[in-house]
């Protein structure tokens, strides 16, 4: 039987998670508000999961990931997805060098620690597949050689929820590869006033590099060690199962609204994201609050709605709310 020294683990996490406050502080220098976005960026970073962002343009999505890359002192690349983009434009290709009279590998923009795939649904499926495959495998094959992607590797893809014309929506199987789907909302009035002030100032604030990519890799190992009790595991499984067979949890009304429930990858992501959340909260163990805190981000893109649900304007968020209000907390 596995023995866990919680006291020792707690002390270790207290020590290792000290940088979380520093990151938050540095991020807050540049990003006004969007606490939820910053928190989820950290969860994705620590839980080794990618993030799908949905929000209107101009909500500091690019700025947030750029700032995070600066803080971690890591390489950041932005890829603007367009209809004429090719897989080689993302992962790289072989080019012929006249000088050496040989084919040489030209690595694509995916070779970075932080990649922003802007408007991912503007490119056709072949480009999306190339990116998502690299996200999953964390390696890219160009010609005959396979290249490992750098660590840490975090992809943040954005989708515009309004414009649907000329887009290629991500298939369910590919959306499932994103650990979190974060919906970015508008800032509050006070926050927006502050944003104006910051931009009117002579110099725009800049985050300082306070971490090394190795620190993140080490922190990820600690996150994996965060203790998760069997009761929490059961709670996660119950929540995920309730998306598949809601009637077994007294949620018969949801049966006709859900076309498909969350996959086992959702259970894994929910567990990992809960651990990362506990780490951010500087705890060495997961409590039900942690699961509930990341539930919406992990599940909202993994539940399929029926036509009936769409006709009644029921969203996946409504379904998740019903589920977490019904499944018994341990």
């Amino acid at each position: 039987m596995e023995t866990v020294n919680i006291k020792e683990l707690n002390e270790r996490i207290q020590k290792e998670s000290a940088f979380v406050d520093i990151i938050s502080m540095e991020m807050n220098k540049v990003i006004v508000g969007q606490k939820h976005l910053v928190e989820n960026l950290l969860i994705g970073l620590l839980a080794d999961g990618h993030i799908l962002l949905e929000g209107m343009p101009g909500l500091a999505k690019t700025l947030a990931i750029n700032t995070l890359a600066n803080i971690v002192d890591a390489k950041f690349n932005r890829i603007q997805f367009t209809p004429d983009l090719l897989p080689a434009d993302v992962i790289g290709t072989m080019i012929y060098s006249q000088k050496s009279e040989q084919f040489q590998v030209k690595q694509g923009p995916i070779f970075a620690n932080f990649v922003l795939a802007d408007e991912i649904n503007r490119s056709p499926a072949k480009v999306q597949s190339a990116l998502l495959e690299a996200m999953q495998e964390r390696q890219v094959t160009i010609g005959d050689n396979t290249y490992r992607l750098p660590k840490p590797f975090l992809v943040m893809a954005t989708q515009n929820p309004v414009e649907q014309e000329g887009t290629y929506p991500l298939p369910e199987a590919q959306v499932d590869r994103f650990m979190l789907k974060v919906v970015v909302s508008y800032p509050k009035k006070e926050e927006e006033k502050l944003i104006i002030k910051m931009h009117n100032a002579r110099e725009f604030p800049k985050a300082s590099p306070v971490l090394k990519p190795e620190d993140i890799v080490r922190a990820r190992e600690v996150v994996k060690d965060v203790y998760m009790d069997e009761k929490i595991e059961k709670y996660i499984v119950d929540i995920v199962y309730a998306t598949r067979t809601p009637e077994e949890y007294g949620l018969g009304k949801l049966k006709d609204l859900i076309s498909y429930g969350a996959s086992p990858r959702a259970s894994i992501s929910l567990a990992m994201a809960s651990k990362a959340y506990a780490f951010i909260k500087r705890r060495g163990y997961v409590i039900p609050e942690d699961v509930r805190a990341v539930c919406y981000e992990v599940l909202r893109h993994r539940i399929g709605l029926t036509y009936e649900a769409e006709a009644e304007n029921i969203t996946t968020e409504n379904i998740i709310t019903d589920i977490i209000n019904t499944v018994e907390v341990p």
Binding site: I6, N10, Y227, D229, K231, V286, I287, P330
Partner: peptide, 9 residues
């Protein structure tokens, strides 16, 4: 109770 239930306290 939460510590006992979830953190092996």
């Amino acid at each position: 109770a939460d510590l006992v239930k979830f953190a092996k306290y």
